[in-house]
């Protein structure tokens, strides 16, 4: 478990949980956190694969670098580091640029 339960400065903001799905598997997240934070908390570091087939994680956490693009509720290229997790959300790994329809 990677959640910080005790901290010398910070208080936990929310303990209300929501359920979401990662690759079809049900996972628990805390209300108000981003999809990226929820995945990392659940021990998932690989968010997808690049075009060259290399594992992809995330890098900046503030929506700037686009390393964290995933498929959320069928929509590819969602920056999960600035997307709040929602009850029932379906999150999938993205491979390369995915099937984008412009």
């Amino acid at each position: 478990m990677r959640r910080i339960l005790e901290h010398p400065i910070l208080k936990r903001r929310s303990t209300r949980t929501v359920k979401f799905y990662f690759e079809g598997k049900e996972l628990e997240a805390l209300e108000g956190e981003t999809v990226a934070a929820a995945l990392i908390a659940n021990g998932i570091d690989v968010f997808g694969e690049t075009e060259r087939g290399r594992p992809k994680g995330f890098f900046c956490a503030i929506g700037k670098c686009s390393s964290c693009l995933m498929i959320v509720d069928g929509e590819p290229n969602v920056r999960v580091c600035i997307t709040p997790v929602k009850e029932g959300m379906k999150v999938q790994r993205q491979f390369g640029r995915s099937d984008v329809s412009w």
Partner: peptide
């Protein structure tokens, strides 16, 4: 990670 990303995870989301 960018150092700021780790800061976001640990101090904003406590992960």
């Amino acid at each position: 990670y960018g150092a700021g990303a780790v800061q976001t995870l640990m101090n904003q989301f406590m992960v």
